[in-house]
């Protein structure tokens, strides 16, 4: 409201403009509460003293974090999740970046169709990807090789929906890339490879990094596809799911809080990198 000094915003449209504005503010507050209150409770209960969390809070403790630190089952599940996430991120970042180039630079016949093909998996429900891959690995490939379900199949499943995100992010960065810079690099004696290394990659690096961070978050969070494709191992979301069946202990709240913080950190870092690079681009355009 304080910044609403432009005549466009203060133009008296309706006699109830003031009331409308106030009720919109209240509605916005209610929606934000709906989005974030559950998470706030999750974090709050991770510090709850009692074994069965509930209101009112009986006392604050770091006990559940200590339990977490000595629980080897949950730690190995976390480790598995990280392993998968790292492999997925590396492959998805490289493949996604490579795919983005021909899509943006008209190196292919039908870039629009191909772009759709590469980004559609985002819109396919996870359980369809899971079932589809399961059938493909167990039945489709069976006559050729006997694929054992395990972390490899989970990685494959995660790649299906993470690569499109990298493609989208890197492609949008490439879209705004001033190709005159490549002319300038060639003009100054840089061949195609050195132009890529010294000019193009450094300039699209923020986008690749943002894509990679998103991959980490998506992969660690993933449940449905993993559920279909995993072997004897357990990733963290799967482990928590199995634990919850025996009742929610505050330990789960503690691990959820840790994951939440790490995810938030990764996403914030990614968006900061993206906006700072965008700001740089804008400044150049001025």
């Amino acid at each position: 409201m304080a910044r609403g000094t432009s005549p466009l915003e203060t133009m008296p449209v309706s006699r109830f403009a003031r009331q409308t504005r106030w009720s919109l503010i209240v509605l916005t507050g209610a929606m934000l509460a709906f989005l974030y209150l559950p998470i706030a409770f999750l974090i709050l209960f991770s510090f709850e003293d009692a074994a069965t969390p509930g209101l009112p809070i009986t006392g604050l403790t770091l006990h559940w974090y200590q339990v977490l630190a000595s629980d080897s089952a949950i730690q190995s599940a976390l480790l598995t999740s990280i392993e998968v996430a790292v492999v997925v991120t590396i492959i998805a970042s490289i493949v996604g970046t490579m795919v983005a180039f021909p899509l943006v630079r008209r190196g292919v016949r039908a870039p629009g169709l191909l772009r759709l093909g590469f980004t559609l998996p985002i819109m396919i429900p996870g359980f369809l990807i899971g079932i589809g891959l399961l059938i493909f690995f167990r039945q489709g490939l069976h006559p050729l090789i006997d694929v054992q379900l395990g972390l490899y199949t989970v990685v494959a499943g995660h790649l299906v929906f993470t690569i499109p995100f990298v493609v989208l992010i890197v492609a949008s960065r490439l879209q705004g890339f001033d190709r005159r810079l490549e002319w300038a690099a060639a003009d100054l004696g840089a061949g195609p490879w050195r132009t890529l290394r010294h000019i193009v990659l450094p300039l699209i690096a923020p986008a690749i990094l943002a894509g990679a961070l998103l991959c980490v978050t998506l992969s660690i969070d993933e449940f449905v596809i993993t559920f279909f494709l995993i072997g004897p191992q357990q990733t963290l979301p799967l482990y928590i799911y199995t634990q919850i069946k025996f009742g929610v202990t505050p330990e789960v709240n503690a691990i959820a809080t840790v994951i939440l913080l790490v995810s938030l950190l990764a996403v914030t870092l990614g968006s900061i990198l993206l906006t700072s690079s965008r700001r740089l681009r804008r400044r150049r355009a001025e």
Partner: peptide, 9 residues
């Protein structure tokens, strides 16, 4: 170049 095409990074 007309737009100078300086490397922004």
């Amino acid at each position: 170049f007309q737009s100078y095409a300086l490397f922004p990074h």
